[in-house]
């Protein structure tokens, strides 16, 4: 539905509407503004003295050199650090894995009667006291001397065991001495028996 009737009447009236003239001052204001803008655009430019660039250039070079030096030092420090780490890596105390061994000690060693064979030694001694010839020969006397040293060692060890307890190391040494004593005893018996035969 058309909402307007006789619209041409309105349009004709609009064409007859009055126009308005702006005051002259408006152009004067525009002119002043444009003039001011042009003057701003036309403001002179000033060329700086040559020395200004020289100073800037000098500062740029200084900064560049400083920057280069810093870079150089940084690289040197890094290299040194790497070398130090490498050196330390090679000379570092090797923390080898903890090694240990379990020594199974025969508990019977602690219970041995180390004077069990003393009766044999006493018999040899008794034979020699009867002026047995065998006891006078040099080989027998060397064995007798060796036996005496072993007896003294045994005596010292037994004393140490009594003082410090049944230490495995002492027991082992005592065991070795006893074996040597036994070996010497066998040689002494063999000497007496050989000569006797």
């Amino acid at each position: 539905m058309n909402t307007e009737l006789n619209k041409n009447i309105l349009k004709q009236a609009i064409t007859r509407l009055p126009e308005y003239q702006p005051p002259n001052e408006i152009w004067a204001a525009i002119d002043t503004n444009l003039d001011f803008k042009e003057k701003l655009d036309a403001l002179p430019e000033y060329t700086p003295a040559v020395e200004v660039w020289e100073k800037i250039n000098h500062q740029l070079l200084t900064k560049k050199t400083t920057a280069f030096s810093l870079k150089k030092w940084a690289i040197a420090a890094t290299v040194l650090l790497c070398l130090s780490i490498t050196f330390w890596w090679y000379i570092r105390p090797t923390t080898a894995p903890l090694q240990y061994a379990i020594e199974n000690i025969d508990q019977q060693l602690f219970e041995v009667d180390w004077d069990e064979d003393e009766s044999l030694f006493e018999e040899i001694s008794a034979i020699c006291q009867t002026k047995n010839y065998s006891c006078t020969i040099p080989e027998f006397q060397l064995l007798e001397k060796e036996l005496q040293e072993l007896n003294e060692a045994k005596s010292d060890l037994k004393q140490a065991i009594n003082s410090f307890g049944k230490d495995i190391e002492l027991i082992s040494q005592l065991s070795e001495i006893e074996l040597e004593r036994t070996a010497v005893l066998k040689k002494m018996i063999a000497t007496i028996m050989g000569i006797a035969q």
Partner: peptide, 20 residues
């Protein structure tokens, strides 16, 4: 419901200017 606007057969321009 728009009403029709009838501009009639004559319009005084001064009145129109004042109306605007």
């Amino acid at each position: 419901q728009q009403e029709q606007v009838d501009w009639g057969n004559h319009m005084d321009t001064d009145y129109l200017e004042q109306a605007i």
